[in-house]
Design a protein around this nucleic acid. Structure first.
Lengths: 175, 175
DNA sequence: TTAGCTGCAAAACGTTTGCTTCCCG
DNA sequence: CGGGAAGCAAACGTTTTGCAGCTAA
């Protein structure tokens, strides 16, 4: 079987390629979403049931350090991962479904740079997260134009209450 | 002793005011930074050594639900809190010192709204975090106009390595 | 051959909760 | 007085780690 994109990256960076790393690399290469470690573990288990979750943790950490993966924190306790090769972008999180939409915005990049400069800093990184809710179709004609959405790891875990009342242990919430 | 600003808020919202809540309200009113729960606990302990950390957790959660506090996640495991009365703003985190600088930017607000709209969403909230490093003074004349900085909770815990090598368990890092 | 990876189970970490006692309103 | 709050310790969910054996290079 030919090496996955991420496995190739690993080799480039001189990592020792074990079966488990190859497996995780493949799972990550195949992913189009932002899985957390448990989800990665689940997907890996489905292919080879002998892998341990400790290895998944160790591997994503390694990959992150080697700049192969990016860790994302959408709020809700668990870290999510995605290949850096997808390039720089930001996220809009649907607070009703938990779905994550990726986007880029040149103007924002420019603005972030400008703000840092204004404050006397060199920008080393930044993150922008939007939390939103599908806009109701207001036009009287056909309701609901749809947005291309990158899909969330696991499905929604119940809607966020708009007024920050009870917080359901592990949900993203709108700041 | 007269009630702190936050205690007044609590009373307005009809919360039962116990000694502990009054204490935490005071500590929060006095804070100009973004303390985490442990730090709040420490500051509260210094005033009244009989408070328990469980109470601090329960209280900040309550205050958050009542829209008195805002929880912030700067990456690094712990949640940080600040009074909402400080108004809407964003943060620039100094990756060398851990210091947090607050800023507002009208253009960014407008842009965030516009992006959400473009994607078919109503913006419910958003967060922008910049990670940066003090700019070296390059100009031969007077070096470095200074930025008003809100100061980090506890001092820096060692610099972040620019290339994401070993991650020191509980440090913010630049995305 | 051997540095370094894996699995397992146990520990660590921040946070929440069950229960009993205590206190505010 | 009664319902909610506090304290304590135990439980929680996620992540890390110590150790003994295994494996890629």
């Amino acid at each position: 079987m030919e090496p996955s994109r991420i496995e190739r990256l690993c080799i480039e960076k001189g990592l020792k390629m074990t079966g488990q790393r190859r497996l995780i690399a493949r799972v990550l290469s195949d992913a189009t979403d932002h899985p957390d470690v448990e989800e990665l573990y689940r997907r890996a288990l489905a292919i080879d049931p002998r892998i341990s979750i400790a290895t998944v943790y160790r591997t994503v950490r390694l990959f992150e350090e080697k700049n192969i993966l990016e860790r994302r924190d959408f709020g809700g306790g668990r870290a999510h991962y995605e290949p850096v090769e997808r390039g720089h972008h930001h996220h809009l999180i649907d607070i009703d479904t938990g779905k994550v939409i990726e986007f880029e915005d040149a103007e924002h990049e420019r603005l972030a740079e400008a703000i840092a400069t204004r404050l006397g800093y060199d920008l080393a990184g930044h993150r922008l997260e939007l939390f939103g809710r599908r806009r109701e179709a207001v036009a009287p004609s056909r309701a609901g134009d749809r947005a291309k959405q990158g899909s969330g790891s696991r499905g929604a875990r119940g809607p966020v209450n708009g007024d920050a009342s009870t917080r359901p242990r592990n949900k993203p919430e709108a700041p």
